[in-house]
Computed example of a mutant assay.
Amino acid sequence: MSTLKSDALITVGEILQDAENRLREAGINTPRLDAEVLLAEAMNTTRTRLMADVDREVTAVQSMAFEAMMARREQREPVAYLLDRKEFWSLDFTVTPDVLIPRPDTECLIEHFLTLVKRDGVEAPRILDVGTGSGILAIVAARECPTATITAMELSGRALDVARHNASAHNVSAQIQFVQADFHREFWEGAPFDYILSNPPYIDYETYETLAPEIREYEPKQALLAGHDGMDAYRKIIPLSAMLLRPGGSLVLEFGDDQGPEVNRLVAENGGFEGIERASDYTGAERVLSARRRAVRG
């Protein structure tokens, strides 16, 4: 609860200091940043402009809007859900509690995929995005590869609604076919593909219980959990990708901390792939694996 008097003249600087203290007490690691982002939203301005005028008065309407968001943030609801959006690849994406919040780490997957496309010289790639969620992989792939045709598959109908909205907002709906389905043997629509991309669930049960409240209590559980060892999704995606990719086509997967060797093992033991590569994210941690579908030999 704010310690500021409701009938007092409140400035940007004063309300931010009070909010920072409250968020720190709530256990939030970035209290000042979060306070600035939420106040800028309430005042319909940018953080830069906000901080350039800390003596500016906060109106009663703005203060009420800010307080409503603050109350939710103190309960550890993610900022992205409070704003209904998150930036990824320098683009704004609508996000709701039906989809995971995009992480900067996943940009590594896109970068690696684009490197493969350029290296392979595929002029009109056919792409499958497994578990599209908010649609970030499919949409960025469509924008970066205007000649691509993309199938974006997702089991959750509500998540697909978010993805369709984002595709429309970024003017790539014509390139993407959205399909509500699980990834199973009967899924052949659009095959064979040149590339299969996926940032699948990869959290194990034990790790899930240690996650921050922002993740554990608000983000969709089905998009995070993947069995007792976090490998269930890979056990499904890898063998089916070996059937759905054209010879020479590539599977590109994101994985969690320290999971690279195990994902590598699953791909290698499948027997349908060659040319395994692993790439690191911006922190230097291994985050992405790619492998080519082995050519069929007569």
Rank of each mutant, 00 (worst) to 15 (best):
Tyr205Met: 10
Asp194Phe: 10
Gly190Thr: 12
Gly260Gln: 15
Val263Phe: 14
Glu217Gly: 10
Ala223Cys: 10
Pro200Gly: 06
Arg185Gly: 07
Gln222Asp: 04
Tyr205Glu: 15
Phe187Arg: 06
Pro200Asp: 03
His228Asp: 13
Gly227Tyr: 02
Ile203Asn: 05
Leu197Trp: 09
Tyr234Ile: 07
Ala242Arg: 07
Val263Asn: 09
Gly248Ser: 14
Glu254Trp: 08
Lys221Phe: 08
Met243Pro: 00
Glu217Ala: 12
Phe255Leu: 15
Thr207Glu: 07
Tyr218Lys: 03
Pro192Gly: 11
Leu211His: 04
Ile237Met: 04
Thr207His: 01
Glu217Trp: 12
Gly249Glu: 05
Pro192Arg: 08
Ser250Lys: 13
Leu251His: 09
Pro239Ile: 00
Lys236Thr: 05
Leu225Lys: 00
Asp232Arg: 02
Leu251Trp: 07
Leu240Ser: 04
Arg216Phe: 04
Glu206Ser: 06
Leu253Ile: 12
Ser250Thr: 11
Tyr205Asn: 14
Asp194Ser: 12
Arg216Met: 08
Leu224Gly: 01
Ala223Arg: 10
Glu206Asp: 09
Ala191Lys: 06
Gly256Ile: 10
Tyr208Asn: 03
Gln259Cys: 10
Tyr195Ser: 14
Ile237His: 05
Arg235Lys: 06
Glu217Thr: 09
Glu217Ser: 15
Tyr195Cys: 13
Pro261Gly: 13
Leu253Val: 10
Phe193Ser: 12
Leu251Ala: 10
Glu217Lys: 13
Arg185Val: 12
Ala212Met: 11
Asp229Ala: 02
Ala212Trp: 00
Val252Ile: 11
Gly260Arg: 15
Ile203Thr: 02
Tyr234Thr: 02
Glu209Cys: 12
Ile215Thr: 03
Phe255Arg: 07
Leu224Arg: 02
Arg246Leu: 02
Glu209Phe: 08
Leu251Asn: 12
Leu253Trp: 14
Asn199Tyr: 06
Asp229Cys: 07
Glu186Trp: 05
Glu262Arg: 15
Pro220Gln: 11
Gly260Cys: 15
Leu240Val: 01
Ser241Phe: 06
Glu217Leu: 15
Leu253Gln: 06
Ile196His: 03
Ile238Trp: 08
Tyr205Arg: 14
Tyr208Met: 04
Gly230Leu: 00
Gly248Ala: 10
Ile238Tyr: 04
Asp257Cys: 12
Ala233Leu: 09
Glu189Phe: 06
Pro239Asp: 01
Leu244Trp: 05
Tyr195Met: 13
Ser198Thr: 14
Glu219Gln: 09
Asp204Phe: 00
Ala233His: 04
Leu211Arg: 01
Ile203Glu: 00
Ala242Leu: 02
Met231Gln: 05
Thr210Leu: 05
Gln222Ile: 00
Ser241Leu: 04
Glu206Met: 06
Val252Trp: 08
Leu244Asp: 04
Arg216Gly: 05
Glu219Ile: 01
Gly248Thr: 13
Gly249Thr: 07
Phe193Pro: 09
Glu219Asn: 07
Glu206Arg: 12
Gln259Ala: 12
Glu219Pro: 04
Asn199Gln: 08
